[in-house]
């Protein structure tokens, strides 16, 4: 659930929040109805978090919220007070990290729109919880890709997670 240190809020259309995003603390006030995805994109200009459906189905907007992969299109920005968020922009301090490099090397992306969601899911979950190739499929089943047919993505994850072809 929401972080234990989320502060008490009286009914209001404007909600103060304090949230750590990619390691930096953001203190601001958000509209009560603003979606977290819109807050990240429009207020913080972190446009790598993409909005594909706004109903929690496609997974393009997935972020790391306190260590869990979460769909930012079906959360309100007001709910993240006291939390810590990582977006695709915060995935690697410099250049491409190993998972991103594996996507590039294995042609794991085409249009790239869904890609940040996949990266955020994969970088957040524990690979041991998703064994074998079947596990990789399961791990990414909450993220839809319309370009790749998942072949390149699965190859990329095998590389990043150091799994043989028929694991």
């Amino acid at each position: 659930m929401s972080a234990a240190n989320a502060r008490r809020v009286e009914p209001s259309v404007e909600v103060p929040i304090s949230v750590t995003v990619n390691g930096e603390t953001v203190e601001t006030t958000v509209a009560a109805r603003q979606l977290l995805a819109d807050f990240l994109r429009e207020e913080l200009r972190l446009t790598g978090t993409h909005v594909g459906c706004e109903q929690g189905i496609c997974g393009a907007c997935t972020i790391n919220l306190d260590g869990e992969p979460v769909r930012s299109c079906i959360m309100l920005a007001a709910q993240v007070d006291g939390s810590s968020i990582i977006t695709v922009e915060g995935l690697s301090a410099q250049g491409l990290g190993p998972l991103q490099q594996a996507f590039k090397d294995n042609h794991g992306l085409q249009c790239g729109f869904c890609t940040p969601g996949f990266l955020m899911t994969l970088s957040t979950v524990d690979p041991d919880e998703y064994p074998g190739t079947a596990g990789i499929r399961e791990a990414i089943s909450g993220n839809l890709c319309r370009c790749t047919g998942y072949g390149g993505i699965i190859r990329a994850v095998r590389t990043a997670w150091d799994r043989p072809d028929h694991g």
Binding site: R8, E10, P11, S12, V13, R33, Q55, A78
Partner: peptide, 21 residues
């Protein structure tokens, strides 16, 4: 597909929540 105008509250106890309700 944006939420309609609304207010938000975050009580810290069940009693506060029930009072708001």
């Amino acid at each position: 597909m944006k939420p309609p105008p609304l207010s938000y509250s975050r009580p810290h106890s069940l009693d506060e929540a029930l009072d708001l309700l």
